[in-house]
Simulated scan of single mutants.
Amino acid sequence: MKSFCLLCWNIQKKSADPRFARAFEELWLRYRFEIAALQEAALPEGGHLPLPFEGFEAAASCNLRLPRRRYGVLTLSKAPMRACHPYLSGVREAGFATRKSALLTHHDIGGEAVALLNLHALNFVPYRLFAQELERLASFLAPLQSDRLVVAGDFNTWSRKRQGVLEEMMGVFDLERVAPSGAGHLKAVLGKPLDHVYVRGLAVVRAEAVPTAVSDHNPIVATFAL
């Protein structure tokens, strides 16, 4: 039986922090994840990856660029990455005037195709714009042909309405939410968890939320069977 492990983590722009490097290495040594879907990654301009990410293929979709740094979602893969498609939200967040980013990547897992959407969803916008952006994201996903799909990230689902419209969209694509053990470690606002993993065409072997002391979010680690 072929399987692979996924790490999903909002790392709060800590890519260059030595404490993050140690935590990331410890997680990799413990779980040997083939793919990492990171949100709020901070990357230096010039194409060089931070030290803990060496040895992975990498693709990023950045929503903010500064003279020496760029920020966004970052997908790392030990398996061959066949293609990547960056995405920026059509709506900007109030007060920040920045868009949010997502990245669709295609991976070869032991000769089998798996697609991953790594997403950091809009936060500081009214519900109407949050729902509107999910509709736009659905149009982005609609042409996808892969039967095996993972959607993972920080969805900013801090209200029942936001979680409800997200579940509706995931249902359209036959995606089911992964229920990790240790869910109490997930970052929550108003009692609602923000980080999720959804899956289609894969069996969940195990999943857990892992406590760390590096970011204000804790990672989800999930193993899937093809």
Rank of each mutant, 00 (worst) to 15 (best):
Y31I: 01
Y31W: 01
F33I: 01
F33C: 01
A36N: 01
A37D: 02
L38Y: 00
Q39C: 04
Q39G: 03
Q39F: 00
A41Y: 03
A42I: 06
A42K: 10
L43V: 03
P44I: 07
P44W: 05
E45G: 09
E45I: 12
G46H: 08
L49I: 07
L49K: 06
P50A: 04
P50H: 02
P50Y: 02
L51Q: 15
L51H: 11
L51N: 11
E54I: 09
E54T: 13
E54D: 12
F56I: 15
E57T: 13
A59I: 11
A60C: 09
S61G: 10
C62G: 03
C62A: 08
C62Q: 06
L64N: 11
P67M: 04
R69H: 15
R69D: 08
R70H: 12
Y71N: 07
V73S: 13
L74M: 14
L76V: 03
K78H: 10
P80N: 08
P80E: 07
M81Y: 03
A83Y: 10
Y87L: 10
Y87I: 07
L88C: 03
V91N: 00
G95F: 01
G95I: 03
A97V: 02
T98L: 06
R99E: 06
K100H: 08
S101F: 08
A102P: 11
L103D: 07
T105A: 05
G111R: 11
G111V: 11
E112W: 04
A113I: 03
V114T: 12
L116G: 01
L119C: 09
A121P: 11
N123P: 00
N123M: 04
F124W: 12
P126K: 07
R128L: 06
R136T: 12
R136A: 14
A138I: 04
S139Y: 12
A142Q: 14
P143N: 14
L144C: 15
L144S: 15
Q145I: 09
Q145V: 13
D147Q: 15
R148I: 07
R148Y: 10
A152T: 10
T157P: 02
S159T: 14
R162A: 03
Q163T: 08
Q163C: 05
Q163G: 07
